[in-house]
Deep mutational scan, measured.
Amino acid sequence: DHWEIRVGDITIHLKDVDEEIIRWVEEALRNGDDLEEIKRWVEEVLR
């Protein structure tokens, strides 16, 4: 699977990601969370 999350001008590409993570990231972006923080979290989860 390949996911693209778009929020404003930001697009995040994710592969082999659980839908729950996608929802979490979308929510975090909508809440204005720091992008670097989100990326770190996702990388942590995917490890």
Rank of each mutant, 00 (worst) to 15 (best):
G32Q: 07
I22G: 04
L14H: 02
W3R: 04
W24D: 02
E37N: 10
V17D: 02
D9T: 04
D1K: 11
R40Q: 09
D18H: 06
I22L: 13
E36A: 08
L14M: 09
W41R: 10
E36Q: 08
D18W: 15
A28N: 04
V25E: 00
V17R: 06
V45R: 03
K39T: 08
V45N: 08
L14S: 04
V25S: 00
K39L: 15
D16K: 05
L35C: 00
L14I: 08
V25N: 00
R30W: 08
D1Q: 11
V45C: 08
D33A: 05
E20T: 10
V42P: 00
T11V: 07
V42M: 05
W41S: 02
R6Y: 05
R40G: 03
K39G: 05
I21V: 10
E43L: 10
E4I: 13
V17W: 07
L29H: 01
R47Q: 15
R6D: 08
R30Y: 06
N31R: 15
I10Q: 10
H13V: 14
L29N: 01
R23M: 08
L35R: 04
T11E: 08
I21D: 01
V25R: 00
R47M: 15
D33S: 10
I22M: 09
L14W: 14
E19K: 13
N31S: 06
W3F: 09
V25L: 09
L35Y: 09
I5M: 05
W24H: 12
I12R: 00
D9W: 08
E36T: 07
H2L: 11
R23L: 07
E26L: 14
W24K: 15
L46K: 01
I38M: 03
R47W: 08
E27P: 00
R23D: 02
E44S: 03
H13T: 14
G32D: 07
E4L: 10
V17N: 03
I10K: 10
I22A: 08
R6P: 03
V7H: 10
H2K: 10
V7G: 04
V25W: 02
W3Q: 04
E44P: 00
V25H: 00
L29W: 03
D33K: 14
